[in-house]
Design a binder for these strands. Sequence first.
DNA 1: GGGATTGGTTGACGTGGGTCAACGCCGAAC
DNA 2: GTTCGGCGTTGACCCACGTCAACCAATCCC
Lengths: 244, 244
Amino acid sequence: MSITVNELKTACSQCNLIELCLPFGMSECQLRQLDALIGTRRKVKRQHSLYRNGDPFEAIFAIRTGSFKTDVLLEDGREQVTGFQMTGEILGLDGISSEKHSCNAIALEDSEVCVIPYARLEQLAREIDGLQHQFHKVMSREIVRDHGVMMLLGSMRAEERLAAFLLNMSHRFTARGFSSAEFHLRMTREEIGSYLGLKLETVSRAFSRFQEEGLITVQQKHIRLLDSAGLRKLVHHHGVAEPH
Amino acid sequence: MSITVNELKTACSQCNLIELCLPFGMSECQLRQLDALIGTRRKVKRQHSLYRNGDPFEAIFAIRTGSFKTDVLLEDGREQVTGFQMTGEILGLDGISSEKHSCNAIALEDSEVCVIPYARLEQLAREIDGLQHQFHKVMSREIVRDHGVMMLLGSMRAEERLAAFLLNMSHRFTARGFSSAEFHLRMTREEIGSYLGLKLETVSRAFSRFQEEGLITVQQKHIRLLDSAGLRKLVHHHGVAEPH
DNA sequence: GGGATTGGTTGACGTGGGTCAACGCCGAAC
DNA sequence: GTTCGGCGTTGACCCACGTCAACCAATCCC
């Protein structure tokens, strides 16, 4: 079996990811109440899935270590990566609407998640003031994020998309205490391409071009941002000419 | 001022949109409790906005009559339409995450919405069993919908996108008791294009081509689907060749 | 009612990124 | 250490869609 169920009981109040995760902004006292929330932890090996499209929905998941991608598949086999998730981020919200998961969540590296049984979450959300609101915020943030991706896919050119992607990764690494200028991508060029609506060759060429222009250095999956202001400019200025 | 505030008190229990809207699936008794939920109604004239990016978030909105588009703007003026909303659908969920709205909601025709003060919703969600769950479903559905749009934008070609769009509209009109084969689009070619990540000329050409091929008839905004099976095939078969 | 404005269609042409193919690098297996 | 398979890079070519422009239809508004 691809998944190891680990019966270790865990507690939000002891976790060092609270400021990134569902319990963000809750009081000491509320946090202790929250410890009833987490069921178990679960380990997921690289390339294995946490859940698949069609699986019955029972819980959402908070990433403790590692990272994931989510994707949807078209009947003819085309894949669309809908997101990359890092520690503290929540997976599985798509399943609430139909009581079945509607995408696949696949580990990009050996990872571990906290299993949050959804029925228990609803229960506690009614009791603990602030949890409900926090959960709504998490869902809302997901919606806002998705709108940003639509903007990427619908209105930006290849290099703008990749620049926006790199800045977003940098931002999220920073929030986790890692370097904002230097990081290791866990996903392949093809997965980046799928996420950005591009082919892997286009992604690869854009990386090379950014390197030629002195914006970044690339060595396989290891990225160093040399000029993030330059990248930011690339995203917003529609490529070339200044108006007036 | 672009908006008329109408102090008519309204009640979910009297509304004929319940099976499409937030109260879906709730019991008679719960429905009566729900009547405390709606604040006022508000009329929004065609082309006017219900809320704009940056506005403080206070309420979500259920569409009673009319329709809307939501969009996000890039600093250089590029617009991305993130969705079209019809009666019974909920607007404003994006605002919960940051306590400010993060997109613009603009009426496509003279419309009316129910104002649902968010604080009151959170309150009632704690009291009325089922409302919380229903609200979560609405948010989750929005996330799933967004993933579908990403699939469109990231992995489909122009005609596939338009075919998927037409089928989606047909589906939603049907759910509202209108003809599934004949309907009136409230948005312009440019808005459709923005939503689908295409230019208006490409949208126009794809409409013409569908007409030539006998899939639909087009007269301005009036669409008749002649062969929705053909459209469906178009979406899933990657355009041309059959495998094997 | 007529002129202006907005939205839609169509054609000719250009180009960003897709496609196809060759090749190189690196880590895993043994 | 050698082999192998997956991943990444690069080049040559092509095509789907964007761009630009002309024109028409519908609607708005004095």
